[in-house]
Computed example of a mutant assay.
Amino acid sequence: MEIIDFQVSLDRALRQRDDISLIRSDELISEFPKQTRSMRNPLIMRVGVSHNGKTQEIGLVPDLTFGVRFSDSSRRCFMVEIDRGTMPIMRADLAQTSVARKMQAYLAAHSAKKHETQFGWKAFRVLIVTPDRSRAQSMKEALLRLSEARSIGPALFLFALRDELRASGPIAYDWEDGAGRRTRLA
């Protein structure tokens, strides 16, 4: 339900603007390289993540993928993760799911330029919607402990609090990246 709420809010916000438009995931997929379009799930990214000397392949499937097209035909692409507050933020074992594991996989995907080779995107950001401020802060602290060579690090992730986001909508919301800098999607 929260994924649908986000998508409806995004649709509403973009319908009110004539300078930007929504690029839905099916339209994004239609522009992917041919090899990616032929995959069973073209939005899944498989990436190797190292932890304590071990590498494990992780499959990333975002809750939602979309783009925003601007009047000059440029675009920004986003992957959305809706956090319900049930997944542990950190775990000692990389084989177990956690928010930190997912963020580390996104960082590794960015470093490996999966967005370029698999999707044909120049860049992307990961939007994380979470239920409360302390959980968002814990995620940002976990993110700062993760390192990935050639990655943009904490700037890859933009955080929002669910109730605040509902009040303003995803476009007008002041998202905060992992380093505390505020930005808007458009």
Rank of each mutant, 00 (worst) to 15 (best):
R91L: 15
V80L: 01
R135D: 15
L107R: 03
S138G: 10
V61Q: 08
E57R: 10
G180S: 07
A186Y: 05
R46Y: 14
R12D: 11
R162L: 04
T86N: 04
A95R: 14
R84L: 07
K140W: 10
E164C: 15
D83K: 01
N41E: 05
G180E: 03
W121C: 15
F119P: 09
M87F: 09
R135Y: 13
G120E: 13
Q35C: 11
R37Q: 07
K113A: 04
D132L: 10
S168P: 02
T86Y: 05
T36E: 06
R15N: 12
Q118V: 13
K54P: 02
F32N: 15
W175V: 03
F66D: 04
E164H: 05
P154Q: 12
E116P: 13
V68E: 01
M79P: 12
L64C: 12
D5P: 14
G120M: 01
A95M: 06
D26N: 13
V126S: 02
S134K: 15
Q118N: 15
L60T: 02
F78D: 04
F66M: 14
I89F: 10
M79D: 13
R75C: 10
R17Q: 04
R181C: 10
L185C: 06
V129S: 05
G120A: 03
D11S: 07
S9E: 11
L161P: 05
L64M: 09
S73M: 05
A136L: 13
G48E: 11
A149M: 12
I29K: 11
S21N: 04
G153D: 03
D83T: 00
K34T: 14
L185F: 06
L43Y: 08
D93G: 11
S151C: 00
V68Y: 02
T86V: 11
R166N: 11
G120L: 00
I89N: 03
M90G: 00
R181M: 12
E116S: 12
V8K: 12
P42E: 01
L60C: 00
I58V: 00
I89Y: 09
M103N: 04
S134R: 15
R145K: 11
A167E: 09
Q104A: 12
E57K: 09
R162T: 03
G153M: 06
D163H: 08
A155C: 15
P170I: 12
L28A: 03
Y173H: 08
L185H: 05
R84T: 13
Q137S: 05
R46D: 15
A179S: 05
V80Q: 01
A123N: 15
Y106I: 01
L165V: 06
E148V: 02
F78I: 00
V129F: 05
R182G: 01
R182V: 06
S168C: 08
K102M: 07
A136R: 12
S25M: 10
I128G: 01
A149T: 12
L156A: 02
A149I: 14
S168G: 07
D26R: 14
L60Q: 00
A179Q: 07
I171F: 03
V68C: 00
L185K: 06
E164L: 04
A105Y: 02
L158F: 05
H110S: 11
L43H: 15
R17I: 08
L22V: 12
M45K: 10
Q7W: 10
G85S: 13
G67M: 00
E31I: 07
I4N: 11
R133T: 09
R37V: 01
R84C: 06
D19S: 15
T36A: 04
L143M: 05
A160L: 12
A149K: 10
